[in-house]
């Protein structure tokens, strides 16, 4: 069965305060990198999954993202996927 490589990006929803992002932004300022108006920290999850075709692989990754990798109450998610030889 073909394998697919997916990269799921999980980010806090825009309405949710990201104190870690704010702390990193102020550290960036102290580093001397000025002009950052927004810095939000999320997660990237890389996985390889077996599926008969890309459509099925997408379905699996969607379920995984919605039910486990992200908490839709506070987080948004999206992913990119490609088949691997």
């Amino acid at each position: 069965m073909p394998n697919f490589q997916a990269r799921v990006l999980v980010n806090l929803r825009p309405s949710v305060l990201d104190p870690a992002g704010e702390a990193a932004r102020s550290a960036a300022n102290r580093l001397g990198v000025k002009g950052i108006s927004k810095l939000r920290i999320g997660k990237a999850i890389e996985l390889v999954i077996e599926a008969p075709n890309e459509q099925e692989a997408r379905k699996k990754v969607e379920l995984l993202s919605d039910r486990l990798l992200a908490n839709p109450v506070i987080e948004d998610w999206n992913f990119e996927i490609q088949s691997i030889k």
Partner: peptide, 11 residues
């Protein structure tokens, strides 16, 4: 229960 618990605002 509804909602979620997130990082303290003061970190």
């Amino acid at each position: 229960l509804p909602g979620a618990l997130t990082r303290n605002s003061g970190l």
